[in-house]
């Protein structure tokens, strides 16, 4: 009894402070993966069935909508490509480094329930697909989080709203850099490190700054929802809501950076195209 408690306590300490236990985790996932698979099976089947049983009209309207969307995106992409070429040329003139592009892989969420207190999700791609710890995860709209545990077939993603997650960001409008901390609430991020006179407004878009090296620069993260200046305090109280649909996504994108060097002037990065 005492031995078991001591072992659990040491395990918790080691797991909390260092990463030595990753191998134990992925070894034991051989046992746990079938359980996760079986639990998610009914949900997968019902998804499949609803896909199969959709009517002809639904399919037609879906196709029409997607075609329209595709056309729109292509038009925007043309502009984007021209801008990217221009940006690369200008940066070449300035002799500053620039990440040329990112490789992307699509993964699906596995329908299992994880711990209530941590904001995390399980995805169906693992180290076999080349996923590594610390890898950025996006959805169609914005940054979702980063990979914290990898097993051969699955990976755990810590969302940006987890209370232990911090993300280097900047305000898209003026390039003001700071760090966004998770609060443990699914639709809320906190920016505790900006002084009272910082130039930030409700509605500002926050994008990744690429500092820290984990996340590529220029991906949207959140929108500021609340700015409070309290005269008695040195720092402003600022909250933001993630632009990613953290609660509702079924598919996520995993990103590999092809060039990991950080750019020095993040405010002049590629997001001009997104404005």
């Amino acid at each position: 009894m005492i031995a078991a408690i001591v072992i659990s306590l040491t395990l918790m300490m080691v797991d909390h402070r260092w990463n030595h236990l990753e191998r134990v985790r992925s070894a034991l996932s051989v046992v746990t993966y079938p359980l996760q698979y079986v639990v998610s099976l009914p949900f997968r089947t019902s998804d499949w069935l609803s896909e199969r049983s959709s009517t002809r009209e639904e399919l037609f309207s879906d196709r029409e909508r997607l075609q329209k969307e595709n056309l729109e995106l292509r038009a925007r992409l043309q502009k984007f490509e021209a801008l990217e070429a221009e940006n690369v040329r200008l940066r070449g003139l300035l002799d500053s480094s620039f990440s040329i592009g990112d490789r992307v892989l699509v993964a699906e969420l596995i329908a299992v329930d994880l711990d209530l207190f941590r904001q995390q999700v399980l995805i169906n791609k693992g180290s076999r697909s080349g996923i590594y710890i610390g890898q950025p995860v996006l959805d169609a709209n914005a940054v979702m989080g980063q990979v914290t545990h990898v097993t051969p077939n699955t990976a755990t993603v810590l969302l940006i709203t987890d209370a232990q997650h911090a993300l280097p960001i900047q305000v898209n409008r003026n390039g003001l850099r700071t760090i966004a901390f998770g609060t443990g609430i699914i639709d809320r991020l906190e920016l505790p490190q900006l002084p009272n006179n910082a130039e930030i407004e409700v509605g500002d878009l926050l994008v990744t700054s690429g500092f820290g090296g984990h996340f590529p620069a220029g991906y949207p993260v959140a929108r500021v929802t609340e700015v409070r200046h309290e005269p008695g305090r040195p720092f402003a109280t600022i909250f933001a809501t993630p632009t990613a649909h953290l609660e509702r996504t079924n598919e996520v994108l995993l990103v590999w950076q092809l060039d990991t060097t950080n750019s020095l002037e993040p405010q002049e990065n590629t997001q001009e195209a997104e404005q």
């Binding site: 009894m1 078991a4 408690i5 072992i7 659990s8 306590l9 040491t10 395990l11 918790m12 080691v14 797991d15 909390h16 236990l21 134990v24 985790r25 034991l28 996932s29 046992v31 746990t32 359980l35 996760q36 299992v112 329930d113 994880l114 711990d115 941590r118 995390q120 399980l122 914290t148 545990h149 755990t156």
Partner: peptide
């Protein structure tokens, strides 16, 4: 206790919790 602890470790891995978080409770 032994089986309780092992199940706890499995639960920790399934739930993505800290290793030992459920194990200690189940043991006790």
């Amino acid at each position: 206790i032994g089986i309780g602890w092992s199940c706890g470790i499995l639960l920790d891995i399934l739930k993505g919790a800290l290793l030992g978080q459920h194990a200690i409770g189940l043991t006790i």
